[in-house]
Design a protein around this nucleic acid. Structure first.
Lengths: 206, 206
DNA sequence: AATTACATACCAACCGGTCGGTATGTTTGG
DNA sequence: CCAAACATACCGACCGGTTGGTATGTAATT
């Protein structure tokens, strides 16, 4: 039965992605994951040494799948790096669809519960977030050079975009709605337009 | 023994504030809280119907104590509402002292774990965050009128500041350092200066 | 034949919550 | 003024269920 080959591991990682985003890492039991993945505990401990190990692997799995999503996304099409940066943020707004657990960030959720008690998970989450932020740096750097923006660095601005997105997710969870998240991304877009001195007049001011 | 009078409830709320910020809500057991507060389980269930009830009360306790802190803070001194807004954000940067669990937000931590499973906690956290944001609205509104800022609302901008702060805390947890949080607040300050068209030239650009 | 990929059965520790009880006020009726 | 009646604040043993994790067995793949 080649169909079952290595299937349990991936099904467990997908279950972790879905269940942890809804219930959080600590509140998600190994039995929850096995039930959701349709496998047994034996399968779980065949593929993962511990729950903490699953957390690390889930963060890596998240990094893999999302980086694939972003690599194939249409926001790379614009010729101008600044336009690509704006297109990226508009794309992040487009992703705010469905229920809250469906569009929020797995690693942002996990790191908040584990940063003090599970260093390996913290590190994996940090690598995932920072790694994604760094994919934005070349475009930001080029746009900064083109527009003559100084006073900050491309790395700092890239990390700031991720901070705003993480904050947007928390607000969406508190409000129980994606609206506030889109609104806060709009503020981020407005900031970047102002910083690069290319505001769209009708949507900024006066 | 009047010394022990009514003390247990407050000690448990303080323990919740400290332990939950470090370990998260789900990972914090009632026994953890009792141990940290130096009381017994009997005392816990005398004052709180359930763990969820404690979560709600902890959010309210957080709202009370922090609103007292902010009410007495020096950022209200500037005569100009815009300057007060900037002073508020500088004050938030000053609060980023000590270890990560000491400066992060209790309700931001709690709501991420409970928004789907404990509606009462979600609501209490939302009320706390939104309530604090609304204290900023009068100054933002006055500053917007004075500077002629349009294209957004004072409420939206106030909520955005809280989103950025929450995101800053997540990044600090991921990185294990407050530095990134201060950096992202600086971006927020830069945004607000640009939006209100009163940049400090040397710290913005050119 | 050996390794991989699971399934089943089980365990000790821990979980949130209950319950009978005690010590210390506070109210009230004579 | 005092004592019975009641309320509040707290104690800690205990309960059934769940937890992360293990030990052992078995079927499929190589």
């Amino acid at each position: 039965m080649a169909r079952r080959h290595i299937q349990a591991r991936e099904r467990l990682l997908e279950a972790a992605r879905d269940v942890v985003r809804a219930k959080g890492f600590s509140a998600t039991s190994i039995d929850d994951l096995c039930r959701s993945a349709g496998v047994t505990k034996g399968a779980f401990f065949h593929h993962f040494r511990s729950k903490e190990d699953l957390g690390v692997e889930a963060a890596r799995f998240w990094a893999e799948t999302t980086s694939e999503l972003f690599a194939n996304a249409p926001y790379h099409q614009p010729a101008d790096p600044f336009d690509r940066l704006i297109a990226y943020l508009e794309f992040r707004k487009l992703l705010l669809a469905g229920e809250v657990p469906e569009f929020t960030c797995l690693v942002g959720t996990m790191v908040q519960e584990t940063y003090d008690s599970a260093p390996a998970i913290r590190q994996a989450c940090d690598a995932t977030i920072t790694g994604h932020a760094m994919t934005l740096v070349p475009d930001i750097q080029a746009a900064m050079a083109a527009c003559g923006v100084t006073g900050t660095t491309a790395e700092s601005l890239a990390l700031h975009t991720q901070a705003v997105l993480q904050g947007a997710f928390i607000m969406a969870k508190a409000r129980g709605s994606a609206e506030i998240a889109a609104d806060t991304i709009d503020h981020l877009i407005r900031y970047i337009r102002l910083l690069f001195n290319t505001p769209t007049p009708e949507e900024i001011r006066q």
